[in-house]
Amino acid sequence: MMTDADNPTDGTPAGGDATMRVQQLFVRHQGIVKAFILSLQPGFADADDVLQETFLVVTRRAADFREGTNFVAWACSIARLKLFEARRKATSPALSEAALNALCDDTPDDSFFQARLGALRECLQTLAPRAKELVWLRYHSELASQEIADRLAWKEPAVRVALSKARVFLRECVQGRLAKGGA
């Protein structure tokens, strides 16, 4: 059913041009770009705004992208500018611009995120059912910890503590797997 790579398709407007190519790359690597943004801008809604604005700039500057260079690094360099714009508008305490700068200069490359993504998928399967449910409500359904608390009839701090524990578990599991497989 899906053998012919170049089967003519529904045809996207001006199919095959640089814009379409860059958009495809963006959509494919969106998870990693989003991880980069979420690390520095942890709120989902704010991170989505940054992601969307990054996408617009990436689309506009499609012609600047050179095939064969690292797409994720290019997209993250654009996301970085957008993060700084968002930082200037922030009202609640956040990392300083100097800290953001230092972190951005030290951003791991996409193989760092790719490796952790693969391990994370496996580690998710080993989470206890309750923790898994919490993680799904928080990260798949993107509910706030208060909403999760309402839904499960828990106290909000208990949800936060449990989520934090789940993240620690996942981090240790991911590192265990990387140490076993990678080193």
Binding site: G31, K34, D106, Y139, R171
Partner: peptide, 19 residues
């Protein structure tokens, strides 16, 4: 900074990992 990226990566990647 290294620890920051290691620790935030789980948070950042979970939306994608739970897709």
């Amino acid at each position: 900074r290294r620890q920051f990226w290691e620790q935030t990566a789980v948070h950042g990647l979970l939306p994608e990992a739970t897709q």
